[in-house]
Amino acid sequence: MTYSSRVPTLGLALGVAVFAHACAEPPEHGTSPAASDSSGQCQQQIIVTFASAAESSEVEALAASAGVGLNVISHPLPATYVLDLAATVHCDVALMRLRNAAGVRAAEPDVRRRLNQG
């Protein structure tokens, strides 16, 4: 199931602020391989954790409020969803919208982890 909606495009200032914040953060060890393309479109697998147990209708509402597309891949824990994120803005901007949405505890890329062998 895919949920999508359109909301007014965020201002340039917000985008600049988001990118500046992203640059200041140390890079994660491995990233979600599919992310924003050169045109600024976003397609990325993410993990969203709600503040409390959430039904699929709340994912739909989240997609609408953030102006992004969210496709449920799995629902491993009551408050946690693995989702395909599709957006017409850069992935960092889309994730920031999701994080700022009411009832969302965290929205992070589905990061690749590595073995700890020397």
Partner: peptide
């Protein structure tokens, strides 16, 4: 789990460890 990556513990992992 002999694996990992840099960063802080996300709520998803936090909830998984708790579960």
């Amino acid at each position: 789990l002999s694996l990992g990556g840099t960063g802080t513990c996300s709520p998803a992992y936090r909830d998984a460890v708790a579960a």
